[in-house]
Amino acid sequence: MAQQIANSLAEQIYARVKGEIFDFQLLPGTRFTETELAERYGVSRTPVRDALYRLKREGFLEVAFRSGWNVLPFDFVRLDELYSLRTLLEVAAVEHLCQASGKLDAIEQLRGIWCRPVAKRESDARLVAELDEQFHQRLVEAAGNRELARVHAEITEKIRVVRRLDFLVEKRVDATYEEHGKLLRLILGRKTTEAAILVRSHITQSQKEVRKITLHMLHEAREVLTRRDPKRAAG
């Protein structure tokens, strides 16, 4: 029981720190100690340490002997590589679905969510981001290759927090509905080439938007920090 509580605390702190990094509350270059976070969150240092080392393994933080922790710059090269791998996996899944025989029940179910008139579409950015993630996961799972789905799920976890930024722009929400609906129709129509081209361009455009929004929000956050604390912003 005690171990379960500790694991739960570490998971919560992991999510909070990761969220603060991607909400630009903890900017690249920010330094802090385990003790500072433990006091801020009202917990012991153990779950804080567990959470921070997990974020270190994922490439978000680095630790220096006797000087605490440091938030690393965004690794856009790594994100680009993850998006490229995601594209390969989803194109493979879509091609398999287009060439499959029989009824595609999972795709029919997705149509009920995405092929809707504008007035009945979701508009909350966070909810749309969750629905979008589920759409792509279910698309890959429908292909029936468990290893493909497993690797895709790992990539989804690694890009989740930046990916949600895509839906802060209203036009991207509308574009997502339109493109998801079109992709489903192409799969059901067994249009392999057209479906593969669409899913590739769909992911590429999302990737470009995420990078642009991330850079913009990072710039704005630095300006705010500079006005509040010039020394910290310079560090």
Rank of each mutant, 00 (worst) to 15 (best):
V140R: 01
R222K: 15
R49G: 01
V161S: 07
A64P: 00
R138Q: 15
G59E: 08
V71S: 00
R163N: 09
A195P: 02
K171C: 03
I203K: 04
Q109F: 11
E62R: 08
L55M: 10
A119Q: 14
R66L: 02
K18E: 11
V94E: 05
E108K: 13
L26K: 06
Y177N: 03
A125W: 06
E34R: 00
T204A: 15
E11Y: 07
R164D: 07
D174L: 11
H96Y: 06
V63T: 01
S206N: 13
E154V: 05
R164Y: 03
V162P: 04
Q207M: 14
K182I: 01
R150G: 03
L72H: 04
R121N: 09
R66W: 00
V43K: 08
A129N: 07
I13N: 01
L215I: 14
L127W: 08
V118E: 15
L215W: 05
L168M: 08
D174R: 12
K171I: 04
R160I: 03
L184M: 09
R200T: 12
L37H: 03
E147G: 07
T226P: 02
A93Q: 06
R40E: 14
Q137T: 02
A38P: 04
A64W: 00
C98K: 05
P117M: 12
D166K: 05
V77K: 13
R222L: 13
K212C: 05
D124L: 12
